[in-house]
Amino acid sequence: MQVNACMIAVMTNENAPPDADRVFKALADPTRRTLLDLLVERNGQTLGQLCANLAMARQSVTQHLGILEDAGLISTRRRGREKLHFINPVPLHEVYVRWVRKFERQRLDLLHDLKQDLEGDGP
């Protein structure tokens, strides 16, 4: 149920530019993370190539790819009748800068304070 609710939330904003909410929602599913892993291994795969690595109906894979595309995590390009899928790590990098690097900095500040305390020239 929760997965469906999240899919609906993602799908209804189809034309809005990707935002962090959609990135996190898209990542909150093991199949979609596997799809991203498959594209890291080999970028620019077709639906058929991606399906070959997943025990799942083609239609479900298409749906997962749609959610990843709406979140901006993959981009697609046509080659004749085929659609090629490319991983787009730009939104992940933005999440990293916004959510990970910030906490790393706090941890570094804590270490800095600790060092000051231990060395006796803290406040």
Partner: peptide, 10 residues
């Protein structure tokens, strides 16, 4: 040869 496609909304 390989390709990469990056997209950013600004």
């Amino acid at each position: 040869k390989t390709s990469f496609v990056y997209v950013s909304y600004i």
